[in-house]
Nucleic acid binder design. Structure first.
Length: 889
RNA sequence: GCGGACGUGGCGGAACUGGUAGACGCAGCAGACUUAAAAUCUGCUUCCCGCAAGGGAGUGUGGGUUCGAUUCCCACCGUUCGCACCA
């Protein structure tokens, strides 16, 4: 224990700031006092501060440090504001890296994962985060994942979870299915491998039935960043339009042996009279039916399916198609329209079929031109940009306008025409208004070992039988070691052999596990119901939820955050939680960047170099970068700043940083260098600067205390009551301004760099204040206390010790935030800026209570100001109270 | 193509509600201390003219609103992120 409770102890302190001793002592004090255990029933408004929990990959990286520092600053700050704060931590512990590590080392994923957790927990502790560790959880614990299984079964009962065989994204490297959200530019989000299409039976969560509310509720989340809401809205992809049915023509009826209608979805029902053909996707049932016995068509369909899965390629590829030889009838005119298979129609969106209006859709236009299909102009240009649609394509063709050549709808504006046409279609039973979403259901089956088992038993007699609640959890065996040849669960009879719960006969347990995004969809609820072994969540969740502040990386803007919102909505529907939205406020912290140095060999192989091994010189004139290796002076290529990553060898290890400079320096650097939402550029000099500031802070307190000991609270009060003046009063004003500024910056604006800057200013001012009178010492005592208090959420260790050094017996972590003293903020004179025609020409000092006329007179009397009148008379004088005077001449 | 964010000194960034542009820090320069170096401390540091006082220009570009614009509006350019043949 690093105790500085008495003056003698203080003098035993080294004059030099010893971060290791300070941090060890402070952390011990917090642990002894159980300072950060959150009380589920404490007085005061609750504050749930949550950081996205880490995957236990082995070591923390700088992104973690930044994330958890932001959360810790807010948690500690809110605690000082009198809020009842919960800040928990856990482990997103299922997932593929554990299996890969297992294969590489021959160690079961469970062992690898638990060892990583133990190590990383030590790292988190050494960074001094104010976490309630009693609530720690790991998603690989059966106590946790049994509730995944339990809710899965409830969702199955309600039809929200269901089984379906469908085309899925298959990652050939990880040998598993990926959700739509996990495919990025046609590649697996983790492996980067080109994704293949496969037909596999799997379980889905019906997230699409919540698409409308998930979309609409985004507007109820003002505490979320605009870009995240935009990304989610984009992803959900709500379009308002009309579903139109085209009855089969004679040839199609004959071919299919029945009546039928081809459904399409359109957002441009106003152009319906301009439809000259209908196009369907290659996988569309009508196309498949027509392809039977039509080798050319079958070959084309096959070609479309095998085509590139790169969506960016798809968007630019040439439009191609074939008539399927069948026709449908226009729902309003009865005209026969040919049906085409077209490579630009997506089976996965809408009905997998479109009505083609070449005159008013660029894709249809290109297609029609190529295959000689008619182009019918049905919307007149409002701006007169065109008379009749003809090649080449103009963007104006796709604009809204007034209908022409559209029978009874001619003359209507586009918006009105959509309504009128929808009504006409509805009257014929051939269409209706509808909302279409881009979002698709969430496939959760993974052919992997290290995940939560799906609680289903397959019985030859009874089919797929849910595991009864009394048999939960379905435990994952923890001693298996995957060998890369598929899911080891499927080769472990002790796991998959079981009895059917219905008929008692021999049955086989489902060996697929759940997508790990299921695990992270509700951990925040479990933190708030910690330790309950009889229920998934309890009333405590309703106390703590919604999370007041959620903090994590922007990379989770869609996947995790959308799934968690969906899952919470389901639990809300089941009456398990009161809130439909889990996260009231979201802060997406920026990436941590560092320099990238690389050299490409003759053979085209890239070799990366750690920035610590490179000297970088930027020419001040040309701005050209010259980078050379420290060891031999050879040149390397500077690639600028980029995200810290293993592959680019530009990571900085948090351990090295904390060992050398301490956790407080690491925390201060991260919070000071950039606002939380922006990317943070690593700088070794910046780290040194942060450390320098802490040493100055330490020395300021040391010097103050050495020169006569700390001033007691009573003595400070007495001096203030006796009245202070001059430099003392100035310093006191700065101190109290700082108090207000820091509270506003952290509490309202969520920016920390400016809060730190203002404390730096305070310390600079205190350094200039060298008087030694009793009043001066009292003011300095107060100023130092304020500096220490204001910094304490950011650098909790050093401030913990300095607070004691300043003579406080009660620990800083239990202290209430001080409010700025209005009397201290008062000023006798203030500086008013004087402008002439908006340009700064002078300054005048005046009493803040001076009436406007007096301020005006003082400004006009200023000699420098008068110079710029150049003989002209002021036409107008604008006075901004307490700030400036602008004279217009 | 659609949607979002952003554009300010040598660098990271500040200026919150339209009111002194460049806080704070880094780097750099000069000085003090030192045998010396490091560390520390003090001062200077947007650009141009000027010994200085002072003046001029200046927040991606062009326009607009205003007594006054980094901030609001319009158009454009650039960077970056997400989505992308979404019917």
């Amino acid at each position: 224990m690093y105790s500085c409770g008495s003056l003698e102890d203080w003098f035993r302190m080294q004059e030099k700031y010893d971060h290791a001793a300070v941090e060890r002592g402070a952390q011990q004090d917090w642990a002894d006092a159980r300072a950060f255990e959150a009380d589920d029933a404490a007085a005061g408004e609750k504050y749930y501060c949550l950081c996205m929990f880490p995957y236990p990959s082995g070591r923390l990286h700088m992104g973690h440090v930044r994330n958890y520092t932001i959360g810790d600053v807010l948690a500690r700050f809110m605690r000082m504001q009198g809020r009842n704060v919960l800040q928990p931590m856990g482990w997103d512990a299922f997932g593929l890296p554990a299996e890969n590590a297992a294969m590489a080392n021959g160690v079961p994923p469970a062992k690898w994962t638990r060892e990583n957790i133990a190590y990383m927990k030590g790292q988190l502790r050494s960074l001094g985060f104010a976490i309630d560790w009693r609530r720690e959880l790991a998603t690989c614990d059966a106590d946790y994942y049994r509730w995944n299984q339990w809710l899965f079964l409830r969702m199955l009962e309600k039809g929200i979870a269901y089984k379906k065989t469908g085309t899925v994204n298959w990652d050939p490297v990880d040998q598993t299915v990926l959700a739509n959200e996990q495919v990025i530019e046609g590649r697996g989000w983790r492996t980067g491998a080109l994704v293949e299409k496969r037909e596999i039976p799997m379980y889905y969560f019906g997230i699409t039935r919540y698409a409308g509310e998930l979309r609409a509720a985004l507007d109820t989340l003002p505490g979320w960043p605009e870009r995240v809401r935009a990304m989610q809205a984009n992803w959900i992809g709500e379009s308002h339009g009309v579903e139109v049915e085209f009855p089969y023509a004679e040839d199609a009826r004959a071919r299919l042996g029945q009546e039928g209608r081809l459904k399409v979805f359109t957002t441009r029902a106003d152009t319906l009279l301009g439809a000259t053909y209908v196009a369907v996707a290659a996988e569309h049932p009508l196309a498949l039916a027509a392809a039977e016995g039509n080798a050319q068509l079958a070959a084309f369909i096959d070609e479309c399916r095998r085509g590139s899965t790169m969506e960016a390629d798809l968007a630019t590829q040439e439009k191609k198609g074939l008539p399927i030889g069948l026709h449908v009838m226009h729902p309003l005119t009865g005209t026969q329209l040919p049906v085409y298979v077209a490579n630009y129609v997506l089976m996965a969106y809408g009905e997998g079929a479109v009505m083609a209006v070449p005159a008013h859709d660029e894709r249809d236009f290109e297609f029609a031109l190529k295959y000689g299909l008619p182009v019918r102009t049905v919307v007149a240009s409002p701006s007169g940009a065109y008379e009749k649609v003809e090649a080449p394509w103009q963007d104006a063709y796709a604009g809204h306008g007034v209908l022409v050549d559209s029978g009874e709808f001619t003359g209507l504006a586009s918006a009105a025409a959509v309504d009128a046409i929808a009504t006409a279609l509805a009257a014929r039973g051939l269409g209706r208004k509808r909302v279409q979403y881009r979002l698709r259901d969430w496939g959760i089956s993974r052919q992997r070992y290290w995940g939560c088992p799906i609680p289903i038993i397959h019985c030859a007699a009874c089919g797929d039988v849910p595991v009864p609640d009394k048999d939960l959890p379905v435990r994952l065996p923890e001693d298996l070691v995957p060998d890369g040849s598929g899911n080891p669960l499927a080769k472990t009879p002790s796991f998959y052999q079981c009895k059917c719960p219905k008929c008692g006969g021999d049955a086989r347990r489902e060996t697929d596990t759940m997508d790990t995004f299921v695990d992270s969809s509700w951990y925040f609820l479990r933190f708030a119901s910690s330790g309950n072994d009889r229920a998934m969540v309890d009333e405590r969740a309703n106390y703590w939820l919604p999370v007041d502040q959620y903090i994590g990386g922007i990379e989770h803007a869609i996947l995790h955050l959308l799934y968690a919102r969906f899952w919470t909505r389901v639990m809300h529907e089941f009456g398990l939680v009161k809130t439909p939205e889990p996260f009231a406020n979201l802060l997406t912290q920026g990436m941590v960047l560092n320099h990238i140095f690389q050299r490409t060999s003759g053979a085209g192989r890239r070799e990366y170099f750690n920035p610590a091994d490179v000297d970088l010189v930027i020419d001040p004139d040309t701005h050209e970068a010259r980078a050379t290796l420290k060891k031999d002076g050879s040149a390397v290529t500077y690639e600028g700043m980029g995200t810290m990553s293993k592959s680019r060898l530009n990571g900085v290890d948090p351990n090295q940083l904390t060992e050398k400079f301490g956790a407080d320096t690491a925390r201060l650097f991260m919070m000071f260098t950039a606002p939380p939402e922006q990317s943070l550029e690593w700088s070794d000099e910046g780290v040194l600067g942060a450390n320098r500031f802490l040493r100055r802070l330490w020395k300021a307190v040391f010097d103050h205390v050495s020169a006569g000991g700390p001033v007691s609270a009573e003595a400070v009060r007495a001096q203030l009551a006796a009245g202070i003046a001059g430099a003392d009063r100035d310093l006191r004003r700065v101190a109290h301004q700082t108090l207000g500024k820091v509270k506003d910056d952290i509490g309202r604006r969520r920016v920390f760099n400016t809060a730190i800057a203002s404390v730096m200013e305070l310390l600079n001012a205190a350094g200039r204040h060298t008087e030694v009178s009793p009043a001066a010492r009292a003011v300095r005592q107060e100023a130092l206390e304020i500096a220490v208090m204001a910094l304490s959420p950011i650098v909790p260790h050093i401030t913990h010790v300095l607070w004691q050094a300043l003579g406080h017996a009660e620990p800083l972590w239990g202290e209430r935030w001080r409010e700025a003293d209005a009397a201290a903020l008062e000023q006798d004179t203030i500086e008013i800026v004087v402008q002439v025609n908006g340009k700064l020409r002078g300054r005048v000092a005046i009493s803040p209570s001076a009436p406007e006329e007096q301020v005006k007179a003082a400004a006009l009397a200023d000699e420098n100001v008068r110079r710029f009148f150049e003989g002209r008379e002021p036409r107008k004088v604008i006075v901004v109270k307490g700030k400036l005077v602008n004279v217009v001449v």
